[in-house]
Nucleic acid binder design. Structure first.
Lengths: 144, 144
DNA sequence: AACTGTTGCAACATTAACTGTTACGACTGC
DNA sequence: GCAGTCGTAACAGTTAATGTTGCAACAGTT
């Protein structure tokens, strides 16, 4: 699978905002987060926009604008982030319909669909076990 | 993640070869498999080449050439196929190194690396629970 | 009312991976 | 030698993520 870094960057941004707020600041800007993640502010705004739609962060506009958490890091899991930024299924079916007159061509999709669903369910369960607070604590532990 | 269909096509090909051999044939051609999967024979040959490197199938050249299973379907799991055709990790890190002078930038990669490894281990465990024989039986059950 | 800093978003370029296709040499049974 | 198939290179097409520029919208401050 083409591995992408959307989940990684989203987790980075959330941890950054969370830590920044604990240091007494109200909001974080996409510019600051982009500097920490070494990427472009627009990339951060796009990702945070998806997290806002999922109810994980809020944004303010105007002067003194920026991003803040909509919930505590303790209540956010990697599954929340995953579902906000990764739309598709883990494994895709054929791009074109297999030959339906063939026994395998006819039965392979329902068979795999079932199996894939079970595996994704397990993946979701694992992702739900990790909170963003867990991640921030791990991050802080690395600097000691 | 950009979902891809490599695992799906590889499983399709293996199930097809397995069934074809049970019907008394020695080898299957990439042309036949491509027809069933509704794709191009070269795509099949490329994928089966990776499965051959993993020791799952064998190929013969020359006249009357084609592909055959190197092991029983009972002894092949989806994990074997996954490892043969999916090289990278499930989730990628940042494309560029995050800002190391930032606490989050410095600690985020080791923290996520740990978490991702645990999740991939669970995924592997799930994939290892499904054999290609299971899949073929599911396929055949769909046609009854 | 003007100024300032930031978001929201569109538009486009770049990169990477997968997929599809054509072509042709290598091989081997007949 | 012939015929059929693999092995593989080369290239085009497609899709998704990422990076970049530009600018309107917004809201606090002066």
């Amino acid at each position: 699978m083409s591995a992408n870094s959307r989940l990684t960057i989203a987790a980075h941004a959330l941890a950054w905002i969370g830590l920044y707020q604990r240091q007494g600041h109200e909001v974080a800007t996409s510019e600051q987060i982009a500097t920490s993640a070494n990427t472009n502010p627009v990339v951060i705004r796009r990702l945070l926009g998806e997290l806002r739609r999922a109810g994980l962060v809020e944004s303010r506009r105007g002067a003194g604008a920026g991003w803040s958490l909509a919930r505590e890091l303790e209540s956010m899991t990697l599954l929340d982030v995953y579902e906000a930024v990764e739309p598709g299924p883990l494994f895709a079916m054929h791009r074109t319909t297999p030959h339906q007159e063939c026994v395998v061509g006819h039965g392979i999709q329902p068979a795999l669909q079932n199996i894939y669903e079970g595996i994704e369910e397990t993946l979701r369960h694992e992702l739900a076990r990790v909170t963003l607070e867990n991640i921030l604590q791990d991050v802080l532990a690395a600097s000691r």
